[in-house]
Design a binder for these strands. Structure first.
Lengths: 151, 151
DNA sequence: CCTGAACCCCGTAGTTGCTACGGAGTCAAC
DNA sequence: GTTGACTCCGTAGCAACTACGGGGTTCAGG
């Protein structure tokens, strides 16, 4: 008779929400486990590891599809890890791009912050959104888009 | 007879996807426009401005609810802009936090990148996900969680 | 007058990755 | 025997769109 865990224990041990575990099963990320006579799912210790693997992958920002690939790779220890490395680099590139985006955004926002205008009429944010900020005069506001830089 | 635009023109002029415009109408972000005899929506120029306002707000990362607030603020030019400023600062804080998160993530990923292990067995990424990376020996891998720092 | 392209209408479902809800069955302890 | 904690299942909700399908309209060219 082998050690087995109910889904609640698995959840606590792996740090993955109970409902999320069932969700992973539904989408085929986790295999359907055997059931006890009462219908309860019975997991073994390796599933805890697998779920932790998944959780860490998610924390690193990998998508479900990518994690599926990574799980397959991890299950074939003799293969070289080009594919895993490719995923990491791809992901790293995306993260760096996102950081750049957010930095630009932060610049814009910090220029808009701390506007103490007594009237919303000349609030920096609202003017920016209205695009009135850059024209000066009210004419010709059509083809010249406000420099909320490439975001 | 007043200038009016069909939804397709509005979409091109505002830079907001046509289906998104109808979506904004459904969720009450955009008022229901009058209709032509054939049932087509008829918009005036101010709606183009309004949609651009919305688009820029979205590009700055504001949520729909926040944009709803900002639109109301913009419609009341005599009020001071505390509320707009609060939203900006709140948002700025969130953006900065997100940048920090992503920076930490980038560090972890760049340590994992460029792993040229000939076997997935010792691939840095897979070991990290498996949590084998930090123990050294195979025992005692349970209570000591791998330092994928606070993310 | 007819055809076909380019519009427009509407409702609904799909996306991502979960999370929550409701109603019901099960189990161990007191 | 009754509480309380657990489990089951299917479905719906979140954000913010995007896409699809099946239909009606408008207009220019032949």
């Amino acid at each position: 008779m082998v050690q087995s865990y109910t889904i609640g224990v698995l959840s606590r041990e792996s740090g993955v929400n109970l409902e999320t575990i069932r969700y992973y099963e539904r989408i085929g990320l986790l295999a359907e486990p055997p059931r006890a006579i009462n219908g309860y799912r019975r997991y073994d210790a390796s599933t805890i590891q697998r779920l932790r693997f998944i959780r860490r992958g998610r924390e690193l920002g990998f998508g479900i599809a990518e994690i599926k690939t990574l799980l397959q790779l991890a299950d074939q220890p003799e293969q070289p890890c080009h594919e895993a490395d490719r995923l990491v680099r791809e992901h790293l590139t995306a993260v760096e791009a996102r950081i750049q985006d957010l930095r630009a955004l932060r610049e814009v926002l910090s220029r808009l912050a701390d506007c103490r205008s007594p009237s919303a009429e000349h609030c920096r944010l609202l003017e920016t959104l209205d695009q009135r900020v850059c024209g000066g005069s009210s004419a010709n506001s059509d083809h010249w888009n406000c420099p909320v830089e490439n975001l």
